[in-house]
Every structure is written in structure tokens, then in C-alpha cells.
């Protein structure tokens, strides 16, 4: 939330990189808003309250959820084990999401350039996408074995659709007047794409990534559930430990999955700020 607001005000005042912004009236330079305690206080309070409630519930019901100390002890007791599993899942997310993002964007480019392809492919894509991914995963494991491939495919499938839809919306939403200028100049299809459609689609592409990246973590975890025990990974860790009622491990893994999602979203926000400084606000495509 606060990140969006910042981007918006920054680009209204000066759409150029922040360095060129005039620094007030020469008096004490202001801290950026995210460094002020006012910005953080509500968040800290919210987490504090949640943690307190958690602790109260956990102490009263030790068989439902573990206490935060138990979770922390589990993490601190076997950092290598968690790190290895974290890496396995991160690897699935990285490869699966990258392929899914690339495939979604490329198909969107082809669809936006050739309407007929959209008519042919879009119904198929919709059929695949309305099929619950949890249902597809076991079938893929049967088809491709317990290796990494089905996990890449599930993760890729999950990110593919939001990327496709958002990229397509972005490539379509061109400034018509600018397109007229390109047409009177007899710019080639490639030139129009490279100088107008592609950069113009970026606000939508980033909106798509914002949805796709957290979903990629979901995809990887679900894929691991299906093939639990065969390969490492935080998702497998959740299912195996839950089956053994080892709650601290289960919850430690869940927190790590959550941390991975947050990490990806923060990274994306940083990249977005560098790439999309010219865009006034986040766009939301469907």
C-alpha cells in the first residue's frame, strides 16, 4: 500500500529518477517516508497483536499450533536442513515462474499481433486454466515422474495465465494517437512493437508479475505436496512433518514459504521502481 502511494507522488512531482528531485528548501533534509516511525508503527502493532494472540492460543492448545519459541527453536536447530529445502523450492519457483512468465508474455505478443491465433488458442488456454491446479498436479506426477519436471510445469502453469492476460491487456492498450504517429511514419510492425507496444505494456506486465510471483510459490508448494517425500522442498516438509504431527517443523516451513513470497514481492517492487518510474500509478488488469 504505502509503496504504491510513494511511487505515485514521486512520479507526479518529478517523473525522473529520484536523484533529480530538488531537496526541499535547504533546511534539514527530510527522511524518506518509509524510514519514519509513523509509517511503520501500524504494521508493528498489527504483527505484535497477532503474535500475542498466537502465543495465547498456542499455550492453551499445544496440539493445535506450536508456540513461536518452538518454531524458532526448530529453525535455529537445523538451519542447513531448512536452507536446503528453501533452495529446492526457490529453484522450482525460479525456473517454473521464469518459463511461465516468458511463455505467457510471448503468447500474448503473438496473440496481440495475430488475432487469429488468439481465436484459436484462447479457448484452450481458458480450459486449462479453469481446471484446478491441485487436480492437474497428481496427473503430471504420473506422467512425468517424481523428478523436478512436474514441479516446474505446475509452477509455470500457475503463473502463465495472469501473465498472459495482463500482458495481452498491456499490449492492446496503446496510446491510439501515438500509434497514428507511428502509422504515418510507416514504422514497421517490429518498430511499432519495440518502441511503442512493448514499453507501453510494462505497467500491465508488472501488475501481472505482482499476481504471478506469489502464486508461483503456491504452485511449487502444491506440486511438492503431491510428490511429498520423494524430493526435498518446503512443501514436502510441510506434508511429511504434518503427517508425523511435528508441528514446529510444519509451521517453520510455512513461515519460510511465506517469507519467500514476501521476498519476491519486495524484489519486484524494487525492479518496478527502476523500470516503471514514468508510469503514474499501478494498473489493474481484470
Amino acid at each position: 500500500m504505502s509503496e504504491n502511494v510513494m511511487v505515485r507522488t514521486a512520479s507526479r512531482a518529478a517523473p525522473a529518477p529520484a536523484a533529480r528531485r530538488p531537496q526541499g528548501d535547504g533546511s534539514r533534509p527530510r527522511l524518506p517516508s518509509w524510514m519514519s516511525w509513523r509509517a511503520w508503527l501500524p504494521t508493528v502493532v498489527a504483527f505484535g497483536v497477532t503474535a500475542t494472540i498466537w502465543q495465547l492460543v498456542a499455550t492453551a492448545n499445544p496440539f493445535v499450533i506450536p508456540t513461536l519459541e518452538e518454531i524458532w527453536a526448530s529453525l535455529a536447530g537445523a538451519p542447513e536442513m531448512y536452507w536446503t529445502n528453501f533452495q529446492v523450492t526457490l529453484n522450482e519457483v525460479a525456473i517454473g515462474a521464469t518459463s511461465g512468465i516468458a511463455a505467457g508474455f510471448l503468447l500474448a505478443v503473438v496473440m496481440s499481433e495475430f488475432r487469429i491465433i488468439e481465436r484459436v488458442v484462447m479457448p484452450l488456454v481458458v480450459v486449462v486454466m479453469v481446471t484446478p491446479i491441485v487436480a492437474i498436479a497428481p496427473a503430471l506426477v504420473v506422467a512425468f515422474g517424481f523428478g523436478m519436471l512436474p514441479k516446474y510445469i505446475v509452477t509455470g502453469l500457475v503463473v502463465f495465465f495472469p501473465m498472459l492476460v495482463n500482458s495481452l491487456a498491456g499490449l492492446r492498450d496503446v496510446d491510439v494517437k501515438a500509434l497514428d504517429v507511428f502509422r504515418t511514419l510507416h514504422a514497421s510492425r517490429w518498430e511499432t512493437f519495440r518502441h511503442l507496444r512493448f514499453p507501453g505494456s510494462m505497467p500491465y506486465v508488472f501488475a501481472g508479475l505482482r499476481i504471478a510471483l506469489p502464486m508461483a510459490v503456491v504452485g511449487a508448494a502444491v506440486a511438492e505436496f503431491v510428490a511429498a517425500g520423494q524430493q526435498a522442498g518446503l512443501g514436502s516438509l510441510v506434508t511429511t512433518s504434518a503427517a508425523q504431527a511435528n508441528l514446529p517443523v510444519t509451521w517453520a516451513s510455512i513461515f519460510l514459504l511465506c517469507a519467500m513470497g514476501i521476498l519476491l514481492v519486495c524484489l519486484l517492487a524494487l525492479v518496478r521502481k527502476r523500470v516503471l518510474w514514468w508510469s503514474a500509478a499501478d494498473v489493474v488488469a481484470r
Binding site: 496510446d175 494517437k177 501515438a178 497514428d180 504517429v181 504515418t184 511514419l185 514499453p199 514514468w278
Partner: peptide, 15 residues
């Protein structure tokens, strides 16, 4: 490239 178009809106590329 014999035609120069000035559209109703400036239609400059913001990036």
C-alpha cells in the same frame, strides 16, 4: 515519410 502528423494530444512516449 512525407507526412508529419501532429495529433490532438501530444502523444509523446512518457519513457
Amino acid at each position: 515519410k512525407l507526412i508529419g502528423l501532429v495529433p490532438q494530444s501530444p502523444a509523446l512516449l512518457p519513457w
